[in-house]
Structures are given as C-alpha cells and as structure tokens.
C-alpha cells in the first residue's frame, strides 16, 4: 500500500465507517466475533473459532463473517463470543465451548433464537459512538 496523505486517511476512515455500519445492519450479513486475548485463547477461543468456521462451512453459510477481537474484559466467562444478526439484538455469550459454538450457528444464526443461559451484558457504553 502507498503512504497516505491526510485526505487519503480521511477518505479511508469514511469508507471503513460505512463498511462497518453496513456490516452491522445489512439484511444479509451476520457477524460472529470471538474474543481472542491471551485469556480467551487460554480458555479455548481458538477451538471455538475453528468450530464456528467449520459449522458455517458445513451448513453452506457464506454470508456470515467470523472475526477476532481483543479482550472484552469478561475474564470469568472466557471464551466470549459476540453475535450480530440482522433484525436481532446483539448479544454476548460467555463460557463458549465447541458445543456452544455449534449451537450458536444452528440456533442463533440460522434459527434466530437466543441460546439459553450463557448471555452476558456488554460492560459499558461505546464512547466512540457517544456524541
């Protein structure tokens, strides 16, 4: 990639913001986000990540994005997974193992129902979006 000028950077930010919004709201897209800090990985986040991808491939779902993020701060409940599905409230699951990962795909992403017992609260407001 070439070095950015000030204008390039601003343009890039605008485009990426739109892309992120689209990802959150678009009718087709769903996102599954796995917390992969040291703590999460130690608790088994990598296994969860691969199970999610494998299950989605198995079900032939190509419109779901699985991605990593850092620590959500919910150490007692690692590994944690956030699920964003269009027309559904965004939720965070804790203590996710391979079995729950499968359930998240089958029940939540496909069945549009929340998976029992493992939901946690997002710890705080988002100051970047706060005006």
């Amino acid at each position: 990639m070439a070095k950015l000028t000030l204008d390039d950077l601003r343009k890039m930010r605008g485009e990426r913001q739109k892309a992120m919004e689209m990802r959150d709201n678009s009718n087709k897209d769903a996102q599954v986000i796995v917390g992969m800090g040291t703590c999460g990985i130690a608790a088994g986040a990598k296994e969860v990540f691969t199970t999610l991808i494998d299950t989605l491939t198995e079900k032939g779902l190509t419109n779901v994005l699985v991605r990593q993020t850092g620590c959500m701060g919910l150490c007692h409940a690692e590994p944690t997974v956030e699920v964003v599905v269009a027309d559904m409230p965004t939720v965070i699951y804790g203590h996710v193992d391979a079995a729950t990962a499968k359930e998240i795909v089958e029940k939540h992403v496909i069945g549009k129902a929340i998976v029992e017992a493992k939901i946690l609260e997002k710890p705080s407001v988002d100051i970047v979006k706060e005006k």
């Binding site: 917390g35 800090g37 991605r67 990593q68 993020t69 850092g70 620590c71 959500m72 701060g73 944690t80 956030e82 609260e121 710890p123 705080s124 407001v125 988002d126 100051i127 970047v128």
Partner: peptide
C-alpha cells in the same frame, strides 16, 4: 445502571486488533 465507562478499553473487544 452500568458502572463501567470505557475510555482506555474503548476498542478492546470491538475491533480486530490486527
């Protein structure tokens, strides 16, 4: 009702750090 307010951790658990 939330007690937490995240400035330092604003992006932790939100963005892909890589």
């Amino acid at each position: 009702y939330q007690k937490q307010y995240r400035i330092v951790l604003r992006n932790c658990g939100v963005i892909d750090p890589e």
